[in-house]
Design a protein around this nucleic acid. Structure first.
Length: 178
DNA sequence: CAGAAGATCGGG
DNA sequence: CCGATCTTCTGC
């Protein structure tokens, strides 16, 4: 089933790890493809110097101030569209960066695989027919954390363990046999 | 208005 | 290690 507003309107530090093991659904010409999320990062409001919203409200960061469940896409290095899901409620600029799905490890590769562009800015994951998130009700994967990538400029915020990775495979069913 | 740097990636 | 490629923000 499709994830709804309630899932996204929580603190990004809960949403980002919860996204692991969920599936990004992407529709092209009537065909829907599912991509399992395996890596995310949390960006946590104006205080977080690594978060784009630390610059305040601008045309680019505006969507982060909106409702949870909106898409925040932006172009980086002139060639990669990075995908983020806005979390928390209105006025609280948080977002979860999708760093990796199965078949595309790395935020730039995710955007390329999903064929994203600026037209996805502020797309609504709750109602869109182009992109949304599916929960297959699978057991939560084992989660590993680490420091966020590429944010060395963010002072003490660079060391926050806000990068979340799912184990390559869910070994849960095997446990009973061991 | 010019300049610099960026939540990256791939090739040499 | 560097180039690609362009948007966004900053400073003068």
């Amino acid at each position: 089933m499709r994830l709804t507003t309630e899932f996204f309107e929580r603190n990004v530090l809960e949403v980002a790890p919860d996204l692991l093991g969920k599936y990004i659904a992407r529709q092209h010409g009537g065909v829907v493809t599912l991509h399992r999320i395996v890596e995310t990062e949390a960006y946590c409001g104006e205080e977080d110097l690594a978060c784009h919203a630390s610059k305040g409200r601008t045309p680019r960061t505006e969507v982060m101030y909106g409702r949870g469940g909106l898409v925040y896409v932006y172009l980086i290095y002139g060639m990669y569209h990075l995908l983020n899901f806005v979390t928390a409620g209105e006025g609280n600029p948080q977002a979860a960066l999708i760093r990796g799905v199965e078949g595309a490890i790395g935020p730039g590769r995710v955007g390329k695989l999903l064929q994203l562009d600026k037209s996805f800015y502020a797309e609504d994951l709750v109602t869109s027919t182009r992109i949304w998130v599916e929960d297959k009700n699978e057991p939560a994967p084992q989660i590993q954390t680490g420091k966020r990538i590429g944010v060395d400029y963010a002072g003490s915020w660079k060391n926050k363990p806000w990068r979340f990775m799912a184990a390559a495979k869910n070994l849960q069913p095997l446990c009973g046999a061991l």
